[in-house]
């Protein structure tokens, strides 16, 4: 039977990709759920600007992107050969 034959690298990759896609969908669903939950619970707002619905979602996404892309932009400036200091 074909299912008992050893999986090829391609098949394994495809299976892994399916798993990853499922995980991403779950992450997305939980994310949406966490935003919707805000309308059900009573939320204390810390400051005026943080009263915006989905404020934390926005900050999480934007700050993460800014940090990672900011670091990436700094790399040409900071990067030196691995043995730069020689010790």
């Amino acid at each position: 039977m074909s299912s008992e034959a050893p999986k090829t690298a391609g098949q394994e990759d495809a299976a892994q990709e399916r798993g990853v896609r499922l995980a991403i969908r779950i992450l997305l669903a939980l994310g949406l759920l966490s935003v919707l939950a805000e309308f059900v619970i009573h939320r204390h707002t810390e400051f005026g600007f943080s009263a915006l619905p989905g404020f934390y979602a926005l900050v999480g996404f934007a700050a993460y992107c800014a940090i990672v892309l900011g670091a990436k932009a700094l790399r040409p400036l900071l990067k030196r050969p691995e043995d730069y200091y020689g010790d």
Partner: peptide, 8 residues
């Protein structure tokens, strides 16, 4: 929210 959207 913060962690999930940073993860996304």
């Amino acid at each position: 929210q913060l962690l999930l959207f940073a993860g996304l």
